[in-house]
Amino acid sequence: KRPMNAFMVWSRGQRRKMALENPKMHNSEISKRLGADWKLLTDAEKRPFIDEAKRLRAVHMKEYPDYK
């Protein structure tokens, strides 16, 4: 299984929150909104998620060195 990218790290928490706030919203609509919201974030706002994704990638490479 591939490590999560920055968007996936960020959206994991946001998806739960949005689903709780909008229980009747379909998952596909939540995904569209999350994508739009992510694009509106500044680089500074994205930085912690980018850093976490880099950390996850490094751990994955160490655990699965032959993964392609």
Rank of each mutant, 00 (worst) to 15 (best):
H26A: 15
W10E: 07
R47P: 03
I30H: 04
A6E: 06
A44H: 07
T42V: 02
A44I: 10
V9A: 04
K17R: 10
R16G: 11
K46I: 01
A58P: 03
R57A: 14
A6Y: 00
K46Q: 04
K17T: 11
D51S: 05
K39R: 07
R57L: 13
D51V: 07
F49H: 03
Y64P: 11
K24I: 12
S11W: 01
R33T: 09
N22K: 00
M25P: 06
A58W: 04
K39M: 07
K62G: 11
D43W: 07
L34G: 01
R55K: 11
E21R: 01
R55D: 07
K54S: 11
Y67G: 15
D43T: 10
T42G: 08
H26W: 05
S11A: 14
I30A: 02
E45A: 07
G13E: 15
Y64S: 14
K24D: 15
N27Y: 12
R12P: 06
W10I: 02
K1W: 08
K24H: 11
M25T: 05
E29M: 03
F7K: 01
R33H: 10
F49D: 01
A58K: 09
E21S: 06
F7C: 01
R55P: 08
M25D: 04
R33L: 07
H26K: 14
A6V: 05
W38Q: 04
M61L: 12
E21W: 07
R33D: 01
T42C: 02
A44S: 13
A58G: 14
P48L: 03
M4Y: 09
M4W: 07
R15G: 09
D37F: 00
N27A: 14
D51R: 04
A19F: 11
P3T: 10
T42W: 00
E45R: 00
A44C: 05
M25W: 07
R47T: 07
Q14E: 14
H26M: 11
L56R: 04
K24S: 12
V59Y: 12
S11G: 03
P3Y: 07
F49G: 01
M8P: 05
K24C: 06
K24F: 06
S11C: 12
L40F: 04
R47I: 05
D37A: 13
R16A: 14
M8F: 03
M4V: 14
H26R: 09
R16L: 08
D51W: 01
N27R: 07
K54L: 06
I30C: 02
V9E: 05
W38A: 04
A53I: 00
S11P: 01
D37E: 14
K39Y: 06
M25Q: 05
L20Q: 15
R57D: 14
K17L: 07
S28E: 15
I30G: 01
Y64E: 15
E29K: 00
K62W: 05
F49N: 03
L40Y: 03
F7Y: 08
E21Q: 09
R12F: 08
P3L: 05
T42Y: 00
D37N: 11
L41T: 00
M4I: 15
L56I: 07
F7T: 01
M8L: 08
E45Y: 03
K24R: 08
R55G: 06
K54P: 04
K54A: 12
E29V: 02
E45C: 03
R47M: 08
L40C: 14
A19P: 03
M61K: 14
K62E: 13
A6W: 01
S28A: 12
L20T: 11
D37L: 08
E21C: 04
Y67K: 15
R12T: 15
K46W: 02
S11K: 01
R2H: 15
K17P: 02
R16E: 15
M61F: 09
M25C: 02
P3V: 08
M25K: 01
I50A: 09
M25E: 06
T42P: 11
H26G: 14
P48W: 02
D37H: 09
E63N: 06
K46A: 01
R12V: 15
A53H: 12
A19M: 13
F7H: 00
Y67E: 15
P3E: 15
S11Y: 03
D37T: 12
P48N: 00
N22L: 05
A6R: 00
V9Q: 02
P3I: 07
L34S: 02
M4F: 02
R47W: 05
L20W: 02
D37I: 12
A44P: 05
L41C: 00
M61A: 13
M8N: 08
R33K: 14
V9I: 13
S11N: 02
L56S: 07
L56W: 06
L41E: 05
A53W: 00
P48E: 01
K54Q: 13
L20R: 06
H26S: 15
V9P: 00
K46Y: 00
P65R: 09
R2K: 12
P3H: 11
K1I: 09
E63A: 09
E63G: 09
R57Y: 05
P3S: 12
K24P: 02
I30K: 04
A6D: 03
L34K: 04
D51H: 03
D51Y: 03
K68L: 10
